[in-house]
Design a protein around this nucleic acid. Structure first.
Lengths: 140, 140
DNA sequence: AATTAGATTAGAATAATTCTAATATATTGA
DNA sequence: TCAATATATTAGAATTATTCTAATCTAATT
Protein backbone atom coordinates (compact mmCIF):
# COMPACT_ATOMS: atom_id res chain seq x y z
CA UNK A 1 0.00 0.00 0.00
CA UNK A 2 1.54 3.28 -1.13
CA UNK A 3 0.77 6.77 0.00
CA UNK A 4 2.95 9.81 -0.03
CA UNK A 5 1.17 12.01 2.46
CA UNK A 6 3.39 13.61 5.03
CA UNK A 7 1.38 12.43 8.02
CA UNK A 8 2.12 8.84 7.05
CA UNK A 9 5.86 9.37 7.22
CA UNK A 10 5.98 8.66 10.93
CA UNK A 11 4.00 5.48 10.47
CA UNK A 12 6.16 4.39 7.55
CA UNK A 13 9.41 5.15 9.33
CA UNK A 14 8.31 3.47 12.55
CA UNK A 15 8.58 -0.04 11.22
CA UNK A 16 4.89 -0.68 11.77
CA UNK A 17 2.94 -2.40 9.06
CA UNK A 18 0.70 0.01 7.17
CA UNK A 19 -2.75 -1.40 7.55
CA UNK A 20 -6.01 0.14 6.43
CA UNK A 21 -7.03 0.79 10.02
CA UNK A 22 -3.77 2.38 11.09
CA UNK A 23 -3.77 4.60 8.04
CA UNK A 24 -7.34 5.67 8.67
CA UNK A 25 -6.56 6.55 12.29
CA UNK A 26 -3.27 8.19 11.36
CA UNK A 27 -5.00 10.27 8.72
CA UNK A 28 -7.54 11.50 11.18
CA UNK A 29 -5.13 12.20 14.02
CA UNK A 30 -2.09 13.59 12.29
CA UNK A 31 -3.29 15.26 9.10
CA UNK A 32 -3.97 18.58 10.78
CA UNK A 33 -2.13 21.64 11.94
CA UNK A 34 -3.49 22.00 15.44
CA UNK A 35 -2.88 19.41 18.10
CA UNK A 36 -5.79 17.17 18.98
CA UNK A 37 -6.96 15.76 22.32
CA UNK A 38 -9.27 12.81 22.60
CA UNK A 39 -10.45 9.88 24.66
CA UNK A 40 -10.77 6.37 23.24
CA UNK A 41 -14.49 6.93 23.27
CA UNK A 42 -14.23 10.16 21.29
CA UNK A 43 -12.01 8.49 18.75
CA UNK A 44 -14.30 5.55 18.31
CA UNK A 45 -17.37 7.62 17.63
CA UNK A 46 -15.54 9.98 15.31
CA UNK A 47 -14.13 7.09 13.29
CA UNK A 48 -17.54 5.51 13.09
CA UNK A 49 -18.96 8.67 11.56
CA UNK A 50 -16.09 9.29 9.17
CA UNK A 51 -16.17 6.02 7.33
CA UNK A 52 -18.48 3.10 6.93
CA UNK A 53 -15.69 0.57 7.32
CA UNK A 54 -16.00 -0.19 10.99
CA UNK A 55 -12.81 -0.43 13.03
CA UNK A 56 -13.20 -2.70 16.02
CA UNK A 57 -12.82 -1.29 19.49
CA UNK A 58 -9.94 -3.67 20.20
CA UNK A 59 -8.09 -2.28 17.20
CA UNK A 60 -8.66 1.26 18.36
CA UNK A 61 -7.19 0.41 21.75
CA UNK A 62 -4.32 -1.48 20.12
CA UNK A 63 -3.54 1.29 17.69
CA UNK A 64 -3.67 4.07 20.21
CA UNK A 65 -1.36 2.17 22.53
CA UNK A 66 0.95 1.23 19.71
CA UNK A 67 1.10 4.87 18.65
CA UNK A 68 1.77 5.86 22.22
CA UNK A 69 4.62 3.37 22.47
CA UNK A 70 6.07 4.71 19.25
CA UNK A 71 5.92 8.20 20.68
CA UNK A 72 3.20 9.52 18.37
CA UNK A 73 0.74 10.10 21.18
CA UNK A 74 0.98 11.14 24.78
CA UNK A 75 -1.44 10.03 27.48
CA UNK A 76 -2.88 12.55 29.90
CA UNK A 77 -4.95 11.71 32.96
CA UNK A 78 -7.39 14.25 34.28
CA UNK A 79 -9.61 14.38 37.33
CA UNK A 80 -12.76 15.39 35.56
CA UNK A 81 -15.52 16.31 37.81
CA UNK A 82 -16.55 14.50 40.94
CA UNK A 83 -17.38 11.15 39.41
CA UNK A 84 -15.68 10.77 36.09
CA UNK A 85 -11.95 10.55 35.55
CA UNK A 86 -10.67 10.45 32.03
CA UNK A 87 -7.82 9.18 29.98
CA UNK A 88 -7.01 11.62 27.25
CA UNK A 89 -4.51 11.26 24.46
CA UNK A 90 -2.69 14.18 22.91
CA UNK A 91 -1.15 14.40 19.46
CA UNK A 92 1.30 16.90 20.89
CA UNK A 93 3.90 14.65 22.48
CA UNK A 94 6.30 17.38 23.48
CA UNK A 95 6.51 18.39 27.09
CA UNK A 96 3.89 21.06 27.47
CA UNK A 97 1.15 22.39 29.68
CA UNK A 98 -2.63 22.32 29.56
CA UNK A 99 -5.82 24.04 30.37
CA UNK A 100 -8.61 21.76 31.41
CA UNK A 101 -11.95 23.40 30.88
CA UNK A 102 -14.31 21.95 33.44
CA UNK A 103 -17.36 23.28 31.70
CA UNK A 104 -16.72 21.37 28.50
CA UNK A 105 -14.29 18.67 29.69
CA UNK A 106 -11.95 19.90 27.01
CA UNK A 107 -8.19 19.79 27.19
CA UNK A 108 -6.39 22.71 25.56
CA UNK A 109 -2.69 23.17 24.96
CA UNK A 110 -0.97 26.03 26.67
CA UNK A 111 1.98 27.56 24.91
CA UNK A 112 5.19 27.21 26.87
CA UNK A 113 5.65 30.92 26.50
CA UNK A 114 2.32 31.47 28.25
CA UNK A 115 3.64 29.85 31.40
CA UNK A 116 6.72 31.36 32.92
CA UNK A 117 9.75 29.19 33.41
CA UNK A 118 9.20 26.98 36.41
CA UNK A 119 12.09 26.50 38.75
CA UNK A 120 11.93 23.90 41.44
CA UNK A 121 13.85 25.51 44.25
CA UNK A 122 14.34 22.52 46.46
CA UNK A 123 14.31 18.87 45.59
CA UNK A 124 14.91 16.88 48.73
CA UNK A 125 14.81 13.63 46.78
CA UNK A 126 17.96 14.41 44.80
CA UNK A 127 16.53 12.39 41.93
CA UNK A 128 16.64 13.74 38.42
CA UNK A 129 13.63 15.71 37.23
CA UNK A 130 12.17 14.09 34.17
CA UNK A 131 9.44 16.56 33.39
CA UNK A 132 7.35 19.35 34.80
CA UNK A 133 3.69 19.46 33.87
CA UNK A 134 1.29 22.27 34.68
CA UNK A 135 -2.45 21.81 34.60
CA UNK A 136 -4.58 24.93 34.76
CA UNK A 137 -8.19 24.21 35.59
CA UNK A 138 -10.79 26.55 34.22
CA UNK A 139 -13.90 26.96 36.32
CA UNK A 140 -17.30 25.83 35.14
CA UNK B 1 -19.27 6.53 70.97
CA UNK B 2 -17.05 9.14 72.61
CA UNK B 3 -13.55 10.11 71.74
CA UNK B 4 -11.76 13.37 72.23
CA UNK B 5 -8.90 12.97 69.82
CA UNK B 6 -8.27 15.95 67.61
CA UNK B 7 -8.31 13.97 64.37
CA UNK B 8 -11.92 13.03 65.03
CA UNK B 9 -13.01 16.63 65.24
CA UNK B 10 -13.50 16.91 61.50
CA UNK B 11 -15.54 13.74 61.46
CA UNK B 12 -17.60 14.87 64.40
CA UNK B 13 -18.20 18.31 63.00
CA UNK B 14 -19.05 17.03 59.54
CA UNK B 15 -22.40 15.63 60.52
CA UNK B 16 -21.36 12.11 59.56
CA UNK B 17 -22.23 9.28 61.90
CA UNK B 18 -19.19 8.06 63.83
CA UNK B 19 -18.99 4.42 62.98
CA UNK B 20 -16.27 1.99 63.97
CA UNK B 21 -15.05 1.81 60.39
CA UNK B 22 -14.93 5.55 59.80
CA UNK B 23 -13.13 6.09 63.06
CA UNK B 24 -10.60 3.40 62.23
CA UNK B 25 -9.92 4.95 58.81
CA UNK B 26 -9.91 8.46 60.20
CA UNK B 27 -7.47 7.45 62.89
CA UNK B 28 -5.10 6.00 60.37
CA UNK B 29 -5.35 8.81 57.82
CA UNK B 30 -5.52 11.90 59.97
CA UNK B 31 -3.71 11.13 63.20
CA UNK B 32 -0.32 12.12 61.84
CA UNK B 33 1.72 15.19 61.19
CA UNK B 34 2.84 14.58 57.63
CA UNK B 35 0.40 14.36 54.76
CA UNK B 36 -0.29 10.92 53.40
CA UNK B 37 -0.86 9.70 49.85
CA UNK B 38 -2.51 6.41 49.03
CA UNK B 39 -4.52 4.37 46.58
CA UNK B 40 -7.63 2.45 47.58
CA UNK B 41 -5.54 -0.66 47.27
CA UNK B 42 -2.86 0.67 49.60
CA UNK B 43 -5.45 1.64 52.14
CA UNK B 44 -7.17 -1.70 52.04
CA UNK B 45 -4.01 -3.68 52.67
CA UNK B 46 -2.81 -1.32 55.39
CA UNK B 47 -6.13 -1.53 57.21
CA UNK B 48 -6.12 -5.28 56.93
CA UNK B 49 -2.76 -5.44 58.66
CA UNK B 50 -3.56 -2.89 61.35
CA UNK B 51 -6.57 -4.58 62.78
CA UNK B 52 -8.25 -7.93 62.66
CA UNK B 53 -11.69 -6.44 62.23
CA UNK B 54 -12.02 -6.57 58.49
CA UNK B 55 -13.50 -3.53 56.76
CA UNK B 56 -15.21 -4.44 53.53
CA UNK B 57 -13.86 -3.07 50.28
CA UNK B 58 -17.20 -1.40 49.57
CA UNK B 59 -16.93 0.48 52.84
CA UNK B 60 -13.42 1.60 52.03
CA UNK B 61 -14.63 2.98 48.72
CA UNK B 62 -17.64 4.57 50.38
CA UNK B 63 -15.62 6.12 53.16
CA UNK B 64 -12.91 7.48 50.94
CA UNK B 65 -15.47 9.04 48.65
CA UNK B 66 -17.49 10.37 51.55
CA UNK B 67 -14.35 11.92 53.01
CA UNK B 68 -13.51 13.38 49.62
CA UNK B 69 -16.98 14.92 49.36
CA UNK B 70 -16.58 16.39 52.83
CA UNK B 71 -13.28 17.89 51.75
CA UNK B 72 -11.07 15.70 53.96
CA UNK B 73 -9.33 14.09 51.01
CA UNK B 74 -8.28 15.19 47.57
CA UNK B 75 -8.07 12.89 44.58
CA UNK B 76 -5.03 12.94 42.33
CA UNK B 77 -4.68 11.08 39.04
CA UNK B 78 -1.26 10.10 37.83
CA UNK B 79 0.01 8.49 34.66
CA UNK B 80 2.13 5.89 36.29
CA UNK B 81 4.32 4.00 34.03
CA UNK B 82 3.38 2.64 30.65
CA UNK B 83 0.60 0.32 31.69
CA UNK B 84 -0.71 1.34 35.06
CA UNK B 85 -2.54 4.54 35.83
CA UNK B 86 -3.43 5.27 39.38
CA UNK B 87 -5.92 7.09 41.49
CA UNK B 88 -4.24 8.51 44.52
CA UNK B 89 -5.82 10.28 47.44
CA UNK B 90 -4.08 12.95 49.45
CA UNK B 91 -4.77 14.00 53.02
CA UNK B 92 -3.47 17.43 52.08
CA UNK B 93 -6.51 19.01 50.49
CA UNK B 94 -5.05 22.44 49.96
CA UNK B 95 -4.02 23.48 46.51
CA UNK B 96 -0.46 22.31 46.19
CA UNK B 97 2.06 20.65 43.94
CA UNK B 98 3.63 17.22 43.76
CA UNK B 99 6.61 15.17 42.89
CA UNK B 100 5.83 11.82 41.39
CA UNK B 101 8.71 9.44 41.84
CA UNK B 102 8.58 7.01 38.96
CA UNK B 103 10.97 4.61 40.60
CA UNK B 104 8.75 4.01 43.61
CA UNK B 105 5.37 5.22 42.30
CA UNK B 106 5.30 7.52 45.28
CA UNK B 107 3.59 10.86 45.38
CA UNK B 108 5.33 13.54 47.46
CA UNK B 109 4.10 16.99 48.41
CA UNK B 110 6.04 19.94 47.16
CA UNK B 111 6.03 23.02 49.29
CA UNK B 112 4.46 26.00 47.56
CA UNK B 113 7.56 27.93 48.38
CA UNK B 114 9.63 25.37 46.46
CA UNK B 115 7.81 26.25 43.27
CA UNK B 116 7.92 29.84 42.17
CA UNK B 117 4.71 31.72 41.64
CA UNK B 118 3.20 30.61 38.38
CA UNK B 119 1.70 33.28 36.20
CA UNK B 120 -0.37 32.35 33.21
CA UNK B 121 0.45 35.08 30.76
CA UNK B 122 -2.27 34.51 28.26
CA UNK B 123 -5.62 32.85 28.68
CA UNK B 124 -7.43 32.90 25.37
CA UNK B 125 -10.45 31.23 26.92
CA UNK B 126 -11.26 34.16 29.20
CA UNK B 127 -12.67 31.70 31.69
CA UNK B 128 -11.77 31.95 35.34
CA UNK B 129 -8.79 29.95 36.54
CA UNK B 130 -9.85 27.59 39.29
CA UNK B 131 -6.49 26.10 40.16
CA UNK B 132 -2.97 25.55 38.94
CA UNK B 133 -1.36 22.19 39.61
CA UNK B 134 2.26 21.33 38.98
CA UNK B 135 3.44 17.76 38.71
CA UNK B 136 7.18 17.17 38.75
CA UNK B 137 8.14 13.71 37.57
CA UNK B 138 11.28 12.20 38.99
CA UNK B 139 13.12 9.81 36.71
CA UNK B 140 13.49 6.15 37.49
C1' DA C 1 -34.94 0.38 75.61
C1' DA C 2 -37.31 1.33 71.07
C1' DT C 3 -37.12 3.79 66.95
C1' DT C 4 -35.06 5.05 62.82
C1' DA C 5 -32.01 7.12 59.62
C1' DG C 6 -28.07 6.05 57.85
C1' DA C 7 -23.96 2.74 57.43
C1' DT C 8 -21.97 -1.66 56.39
C1' DT C 9 -21.65 -5.69 53.82
C1' DA C 10 -21.27 -9.65 50.41
C1' DG C 11 -21.86 -10.39 46.27
C1' DA C 12 -24.00 -8.95 41.85
C1' DA C 13 -23.74 -5.58 38.20
C1' DT C 14 -21.34 -2.46 35.32
C1' DA C 15 -17.73 -0.24 32.69
C1' DA C 16 -13.33 0.11 30.88
C1' DT C 17 -9.70 -2.32 29.16
C1' DT C 18 -7.07 -6.38 27.86
C1' DC C 19 -6.78 -11.07 26.29
C1' DT C 20 -7.60 -15.05 23.16
C1' DA C 21 -7.31 -17.50 19.30
C1' DA C 22 -9.38 -17.62 14.79
C1' DT C 23 -9.14 -15.16 10.53
C1' DA C 24 -7.33 -11.75 7.46
C1' DT C 25 -3.75 -8.95 5.39
C1' DA C 26 0.72 -6.60 4.29
C1' DT C 27 5.27 -7.47 3.15
C1' DT C 28 8.99 -10.28 1.46
C1' DG C 29 11.48 -12.77 -1.67
C1' DA C 30 11.38 -16.35 -5.29
C1' DT D 1 3.14 -12.10 -9.62
C1' DC D 2 2.36 -15.17 -6.03
C1' DA D 3 3.21 -18.06 -2.29
C1' DA D 4 4.99 -17.91 2.45
C1' DT D 5 4.89 -15.87 6.81
C1' DA D 6 4.91 -12.56 10.19
C1' DT D 7 1.97 -9.43 12.00
C1' DA D 8 -2.66 -7.16 12.51
C1' DT D 9 -7.57 -7.31 13.13
C1' DT D 10 -11.54 -8.98 15.15
C1' DA D 11 -15.57 -10.67 18.08
C1' DG D 12 -16.37 -11.95 22.05
C1' DA D 13 -14.58 -13.74 26.48
C1' DA D 14 -11.92 -12.52 30.54
C1' DT D 15 -10.25 -9.40 33.78
C1' DT D 16 -10.08 -5.43 36.74
C1' DA D 17 -11.68 -1.53 39.09
C1' DT D 18 -15.52 0.47 40.80
C1' DT D 19 -20.40 1.02 41.90
C1' DC D 20 -24.85 -0.86 42.97
C1' DT D 21 -28.31 -3.64 45.60
C1' DA D 22 -30.89 -4.89 49.15
C1' DA D 23 -30.41 -7.38 53.43
C1' DT D 24 -28.58 -6.62 57.86
C1' DC D 25 -26.68 -3.81 61.42
C1' DT D 26 -25.64 0.16 64.40
C1' DA D 27 -25.24 5.00 66.16
C1' DA D 28 -27.87 8.60 67.61
C1' DT D 29 -32.19 10.18 69.35
C1' DT D 30 -36.28 9.78 71.96
Amino acid sequence: MKNNNVFLEKLRSSGLILTKQRIEICKFLFDRKETFHFTINDLQSILRKRSNEKISLATIYNTVHTFKKKGFLKEILINSNSNSNSNYFDTNVSNHHHFFDESTNELIDLKDSDVGDIKIKKNITKKKIKSIEVLVRLAK
